[in-house]
Amino acid sequence: MFTGIIEEIGTIAQVQSRPQSLKLEITAHTILQDIELGHSIAVNGVCLTVTHFSSTHFTVETFHTTSLQKLKTGSEVNLERALSLQDRLGGHFVTGHVDGIAIVHSQYEVENALYMTLRIPDEWKKYLLPKGAIALDGTSLTIFKVEDNQVTISLIPHTQEKTVLANKEMGDVVNLECDVLGKYVEQMVFQSKVKQQSLTKDFLQRNGFF
């Protein structure tokens, strides 16, 4: 579990591409201070397991199912260690299990804020609402506006400086994770409706209750 508060921007030192997976070696500093084999690190929002590390690098592996497949040597990535029990929850609960990919559609500035509009896959629109939470490349953000299949977020100067999002251009892809709370609520409502529909007079008659 993560918070979406990016701790450090790392740099891809090496990419080993396989038919279905990637092996990434990432240069970092802060992340390495208490790292151990098997630790979970969110790389652009994707929860990955550390398989090797040194004083300057760590290695993770992943599949070709997220925006990480676009990374090259020299690419910068958002990094966050897993949440510990004594940490403050400055963002929102981010699982690191990416829902899909969003595409940068447009950008514009208002004073010192950078507004970014992204196209979202239709299947995830139902979880998005103004002032709700979203994670883009692992960054916890508040939704500014939702319109059709597009969502707009605002990057304050601190977020522009401390994450990779401000460097995105039109057509670039980012990892998308919707707020897990909405998914749980949907599941509970669905199960409730199923139970209500199943306990009808017709259902009881078919099953010999009267």
Rank of each mutant, 00 (worst) to 15 (best):
2 F>K: 15
4 G>P: 09
8 E>T: 09
9 I>V: 14
12 I>G: 03
17 S>P: 01
20 Q>V: 07
20 Q>F: 05
20 Q>K: 13
21 S>N: 08
21 S>D: 04
23 K>F: 06
26 I>Q: 02
29 H>W: 00
30 T>I: 06
36 E>H: 14
38 G>W: 13
39 H>W: 13
42 A>I: 04
42 A>P: 02
44 N>L: 03
45 G>K: 01
46 V>A: 14
47 C>F: 01
48 L>F: 07
52 H>S: 06
52 H>Q: 13
53 F>C: 03
54 S>C: 03
58 F>Y: 15
60 V>S: 09
73 T>K: 15
76 E>A: 04
79 L>A: 04
80 E>P: 00
84 S>N: 13
84 S>H: 11
85 L>G: 08
87 D>N: 15
88 R>L: 14
88 R>K: 11
90 G>R: 10
95 T>S: 15
97 H>G: 08
99 D>W: 07
102 A>D: 05
104 V>Y: 02
109 E>L: 12
109 E>I: 08
112 N>K: 07
112 N>G: 06
113 A>H: 14
116 M>F: 11
117 T>I: 02
119 R>E: 12
119 R>C: 00
125 K>T: 06
126 K>D: 12
126 K>I: 15
130 P>C: 02
132 G>Y: 03
133 A>N: 11
134 I>Q: 05
134 I>K: 13
136 L>E: 08
141 L>Y: 04
142 T>G: 08
143 I>F: 03
143 I>D: 04
145 K>Q: 10
147 E>I: 05
148 D>A: 14
150 Q>P: 01
152 T>M: 07
152 T>K: 06
152 T>E: 05
156 I>D: 03
157 P>T: 03
158 H>K: 06
159 T>Y: 07
159 T>C: 10
160 Q>G: 13
161 E>V: 06
163 T>P: 01
169 E>S: 15
169 E>Y: 00
170 M>E: 15
170 M>F: 10
175 N>D: 11
181 L>P: 04
181 L>D: 14
182 G>Y: 04
183 K>V: 12
189 V>G: 03
192 S>H: 05
194 V>H: 01
194 V>T: 15
195 K>T: 08
198 S>V: 07
199 L>A: 09
201 K>T: 12
207 N>P: 01
210 F>M: 02
